[in-house]
């Protein structure tokens, strides 16, 4: 049976992993490649590297991180952040990434999904959606880390993404990001039921129950989190034991 996936996300700045929380000014750093190895050994199913640098020099360092990870870590990983063109896709795939996630650039130019899918195959095109719910309960797509509301309907955008050729959707709920009150189950479920590609839930993970909820009730195919793993509040191995005990199919390493 296909297992539900657990995916730690690593934000990378200047070649280092930034461990930050939204509402707490904690910053710590770690080497991305060694952290990736550690997660892989603990049984993480995939990894996401998110480039949060701005300068070109830092971009080269990031590509170097991608190359080293591909050499040393034998699980799949997605690269996101700063992907603006098909050429950007090519660069990170060439460096060894398995999938590339595109966010703002796809909102501005949806054709990038189609072009990348045609060039490299749908399996490596991930549409990452930042979503927020307004007071009327309407979910819309946001840009620039939640600062710009595009007024685009989240569910429609997910369907558009599938139609254009995305092979997977990451739904990142901004309201719950970093606040650890649980994933947003209803919108995750709605998207998962209405597209026929895998859906990764992101934003809000605080405890093991949250993962269980989103992988069952929320119908997510995978769950992504950062700080709970980085700060070792949740260990991948223990999380998987917990999920397995609750009848969720997960890959456990012996």
């Amino acid at each position: 049976m296909l297992a539900k996936r657990i995916i730690p996300c690593l934000d990378v700045r200047n070649g280092r992993v930034v461990k930050g929380q939204k509402f707490q000014n904690i910053k710590d750093v770690d080497d991305p490649v060694s952290l990736a190895k550690t997660y892989s050994e603990q049984g993480a199913d995939e990894l996401v590297f998110y480039d949060i640098t701005a300068s070109n020099e830092a971009r080269d360092i990031f590509i170097d991180v991608v190359e080293q990870t591909a050499e040393q870590v034998h699980i799949p990983f997605t690269v996101g952040g700063g992907i603006r063109s098909v050429e950007d896709f090519r660069k990170v795939l060439k460096a060894g990434a398995d999938k590339v996630s595109v966010n703002s650039a796809a909102v501005k130019n949806p054709q990038i999904i189609q072009e990348a899918a045609q060039k490299f195959g749908s399996q490596c095109v991930v549409l990452s959606i930042d979503a927020k719910q307004n007071e009327q309960g309407w979910w819309t797509v946001y840009l620039n880390g939640g600062r710009v509301n595009t007024e685009k309907d989240v569910l429609e955008w997910a369907k558009d993404g599938e139609r254009l050729g995305a092979g997977e959707i990451v739904l990142n709920v901004m309201d719950t990001d970093g606040v650890k009150t649980g994933f947003s189950l209803a919108i995750t479920k709605a998207i998962s039921e209405q597209v026929n590609i895998p859906v990764v839930a992101s934003g809000g993970a605080g405890n093991q129950e949250h993962f269980l909820e989103v992988l069952t009730e929320g119908k997510a195919d995978a769950a992504l989190a950062a700080s709970v793993f980085h700060f070792e509040e949740i260990k991948v191995k223990e999380l998987k034991d917990y999920l397995a005990a609750n009848d969720v199919e997960v890959r456990r390493i012996s």
Partner: peptide, 10 residues
């Protein structure tokens, strides 16, 4: 089933 078949399977 969802296509692509993506992830870890037995």
């Amino acid at each position: 089933v969802k296509v692509p078949h993506m992830g870890w399977n037995t």
